[in-house]
Design a protein around this nucleic acid. Sequence first.
DNA 1: GCCAACGTTGGC
DNA 2: GCCAACGTTGGC
Length: 540
Amino acid sequence: MAEDWLDCPALGPGWKRREVYRKSGVTCGRSDTYYQSPTGDRIRSKVELTRYLGPACDLSLFDFKQGILCYPTPKVQAVAVPSKKRKKSSRSAKTRKRQVAPQRTEVRKEDPRDETKADTDTAPASFPAPGCCENCGISFSGDGTGRQRLKTLCKDCRAQRIAFNREQRMFKRVGCGECAACRVTEDCGACSTCLLQLPHDVASGLFCKCERRRCLRIVQRSRGCGVCRGCQTQEDCGHCRVCLRPPRPGLRRQWRCVQRRCLRGKRGRHRGGCDSKMAARRHSRAQPVPILPTPQPPEPPEPTELQPYTNRRQNRKCGACAACLRRMDCGRCDFCCDKPKFGGSNQKRQKCRWRQCLQFAMKRLLPSVGSGSEEGAGSPPLHPRRKRPGSARRPHLAPTLKPPLATRTARPGRAQPLMKQEAGASFVLPPPGTDLVFLREGASSPVQVPGPATASTEAPLQAVDLCLPPVKQEPPDPEEGKEENKDGCVSESAPEEEEAGGPGTPVITEIFSLGGTRFRDTAVWLPRSKDLKKPGARKQ
DNA sequence: GCCAACGTTGGC
DNA sequence: GCCAACGTTGGC
């Protein structure tokens, strides 16, 4: 990837340009031109470039597609080039940039202020000295990679890390083929995976193998590899953002010093597992596994298809639910805030949470829900923005569409059957300006608004008006109890992750969007929804 | 497993 | 040309 970037002297030193030809789709062959600033920012259009450089830069002579100046007058040179050169050393350029994108929080390492002040609030303190590899410590010059997390590694270490990760994924998918576990050919029939009859979807990368057949070469994260620089560091550095972070009252989690985090992965995996959840499940299996009372065999996953756009892209819109019918971005959710039109930095690039199709989200969560019975589920979208005649299904489903998601995330016996029962009817449109989420009493999860008949006749449904701005009310730290309380291990996650999914995120869509795998969060806010009908009830 | 980041593509 | 947002990937 980095090899594709070519210097673009027209914009000044450090600017790079890349031309990418679309390899598939209806626009196959079309080329897109991207630029990369000396600080690593990606620019996709002339508008963005103008926005990036600020109004002082006159780009009228700059041919964005070609990356050249039509008239190499000193005007553009005088403005564009020096301004970018100064960007590293002057404050004005950066200030200008922030005026354009006020929410941009990325901190560029070249800012000399970073060198003079220990700005651990903004600067990623995990970065070693500028230009030094986090792993081996050698100094290296950036090669233009856009990945922030890879920027801390030199080329060799990065390649090593990526190769290692790929290998681990492969082990998770198909195993090494050599270890004892991989040589086991039959399921044990007694582990939780076998008992739950989770689909053994090896080909799609799902980790639903019988626990005794999981590759032994999968590295467990919670221990560390023990050999990398991070693992071998014995003492906290005392100056990273974790060490400098003042203790927060009530926050039980402890963070591992940035300099002591494993740089590879973790070693010494438990037998047959790759993550803490699996480990927890195995731990709970220490006692003889009781014979479950005839577990309900999961319904065979039906084909979960909204209308695909293309071979590669899938239509995520049913066109009928309230979210699909919503025309305007809320402008408040995190995805909206990320959008350039709202002043964001365009990093997440996701649809407004309030506009993310509920039907699609349901299907992602519960693939068997409403299939075939709901317009939008098996029929073409009502308002297909992206249609692709004759498009074929993807060869395999996207990871978030895979069946075990439901069995993994849904609360067994409660939410899933309920949602199965109710999906399939059309949605009730909320009154203009409002978004309604219906909650069935006793349900462990929010239920999409069912059809009018169901909604009106089937008591007791409760409508919770989430009038905009639908702001998550003081969400309990989802991190707490998620990692820390599981085993008391010191988490390696960065402190800022606590603020993930910050305020302003619509509750319902946060659960359903982005993979729709936050069912666990329903446990967090469900009681709150109950509280709504019981004023005075204790807030969780 | 989950999420953030971002490459990529559809369509206006 | 530009934007919206889908889909993949690296990291935690």
